[in-house]
Amino acid sequence: MAERICGICSDAHTTCYTQAIEDLLGIEAPPRAKYIRVIIAELERIHSHSLWLGIAAHEIGFDTLFMYLWRDRETVMDMLEFISGNRVHYAMNTIGGVRRDIPSEMTPKIKDGLDFLEKRIKYYIKTISSDRTIQKRTVDVGILKPKDAIELCAVGPTLRASGVKNDVRRDDPYAAYDEIPFNVVTHDGCDVFARIIVRCEEMLESINMIRYALDHMPAGMLRVRVPMAVEPNEAVSRVEAPRGELIHYARSNGTARPERYKVRSPTLANIPALCKMLMGQHVADIPIVLAGIDPCFACMDRLALIDVNTGRKKILDFNSLRENIRRMRGNCP
């Protein structure tokens, strides 16, 4: 069920959930399961970042790039479907391990897909950094200074694009991340362009990590036996989802039902930083700045308008926004 929290980072939520419950029960997933978790998580990161990149291109009106990116994204979706049996909800993680193996027969096909993706992503990085349309729309737009980013507790690529080296995978390693070498990509640009470059280079890092994990996967069991009774206990579990730090808190009270289960998704953590970025921007730049944090809007259905000159603040909720739209439509049929 934890998988259904999000349709894009479904694997991050299940990883976080299973880790929290494994912590509660005092068990640990076997090494092979940890490697499989890393492979799926990184494939998901590639899929999520390329989806985001397409959306960002669409927001600045560059639909050609959007179409090509999403065509190439099908490769990684097909790879995930091929490994797990579903395109979006992989259902790979289970408490105490993973449900399906990645046998060695699958490795060549995955590697072919990775080679293709690497070629394409390198091409897109070249295109993005040389294209004038993208440069004009994203450089120096949506500035978030490192000091503000830390102060407002931003997470994930948004924080790393402000030059802060912070990644849960490196700082608080879970699954097999402590055994796999990788770089934490940062950029000092602090603007939307930096966020694009950070995400593109993270995709290349992910490809290298999957290659390493496929080559160094230890043999062994896929899951351990899970004790049926739960002691009263509590656990905090953190995962680096494609959008940033994801945290689950679980507390059991000795019965089959949890006492408290709390999920904080990365988008909520980035909203205060987003407010800072939007201050003093052009209205036409709002979509790309908003898309710059890679938002998943599930719980934000309001909008605050602040006049920078007077400091006057007006909050429009969903209903009054609808009223306004209706009135505007009434005026110009």
């Binding site: 830390i150 102060e151 507790c153 912070n166 953190r238 730090e245 945290i247 808190y249 507390r251 006492e259 408290r260 709390k262 904080r264 953590a269």
Partner: peptide, 10 residues
């Protein structure tokens, strides 16, 4: 400096 979240339990 980083606060991850605030949880309350009844």
């Amino acid at each position: 400096t980083h606060i991850s979240t605030i949880t309350a339990v009844d």
